[in-house]
């Protein structure tokens, strides 16, 4: 009976295991080189500053790896302290790729300074980051990056990226697990989308509110509100909020606890 079940039309010959013809083609690779470490980041610019913030939770699946793994980095500064940095980078998605990307950009910015004797501009750094990401177009860094700094005029500058290097300068950007929750809130509160000046007209004549650069304390409050909201409704966001603020005077870091559930 078993011989009927075990019958294989290809094995009419005797069973020398090593003389078996190898008809197995290319074996499918079952190793998946990516994972999602969750978390969210968000950046907002002001007149003379830029804020980059991210939660500090690291997850894999339903596990919390750690409650403090920073996602926002200083670029071009000292390895340990970050002193002397003039650019901020946040990466969210696959943390190992994020770290590798950060270290490559950091090296590039440092080499630029050694070779040209001046710090790299944010605009140049933004273009370079795009090139780095596109360089791995067919095995991408699985990250959404946000770059922040001050532009040539001293205004806050913020650049948002997709994993393969498409980028755009923006006033504000959310990325990561809870970006779909945070971004519409930012549209409404920072870019004043769907807000009109009361009594300015009827129907199409109604005048839309114009977004103005916000003062720093307002921006910090919006960032905190965005994250406390995201923590309520997204399981991969929580534990702590790390906020880096870049001004002409340097980079300031604020840590703010978030719910740990």
């Amino acid at each position: 009976m078993a011989s009927i079940i075990g019958h294989n039309p290809h094995s009419n010959s005797i069973g020398y295991s090593f003389s078996q013809p190898t008809n197995a083609g290319n074996k499918e690779h079952s190793f998946y080189p990516y994972t999602d470490n969750g978390g969210s980041v968000l950046g907002i610019t002001g007149k003379d500053f830029a804020v980059l913030a991210g939660d500090t939770r690291s997850t894999s699946g339903y596990n919390i790896n750690s409650r403090y793994v920073p996602k926002v980095f200083k670029i071009g500064g000292d390895q340990e302290t970050g002193e002397g940095a003039h650019i901020l980078l946040s990466v969210v998605g696959f943390a190992a790729d994020g770290l590798a990307l950060k270290e490559r950009l950091d090296a590039v910015v440092k080499m630029y300074k050694y070779q040209h004797g001046k710090p790299m501009s944010v605009r140049a750094c933004a273009q370079r980051l795009s090139t780095i990401l596109y360089g791995k177009r067919f095995f991408p860094y699985y990250v959404q990056a946000i770059l922040a700094g001050l532009d040539e005029e001293g205004k806050g500058a913020l650049y948002g990226y997709d994993p393969v290097g498409s980028y755009e300068r923006e006033q504000c950007r959310a990325a990561g697990a809870a970006s779909s929750l945070i971004m519409p809130f930012l549209d409404n509160q920072v870019n004043l989308k769907n807000q009109y000046i009361p009594g300015s007209g009827e129907g199409h004549a109604l005048e839309a509110k114009k977004p103005e650069p916000m003062p720093r304390d307002t921006v910090e409050q919006v960032v905190r509100d965005a994250f406390t909201s995201a923590v309520e409704r997204h399981i991969e966001v929580g534990d702590g909020l790390q906020m880096l603020i870049i001004t002409a005077d340097g980079i300031e870091e604020i840590y703010h606890p978030l719910k740990k559930d």
Partner: peptide
């Protein structure tokens, strides 16, 4: 979820509730 969690607060008057739900929906 993002807009409502950010904009909603308890005990809104009908006028304010209208504004809140409209902003939340339109932005979303």
């Amino acid at each position: 979820f993002g807009t409502c969690e950010g904009l909603w607060e308890p005990d809104l008057s009908p006028e304010n509730l209208f504004e809140t739900i409209s902003q939340a929906l339109l932005s979303a």
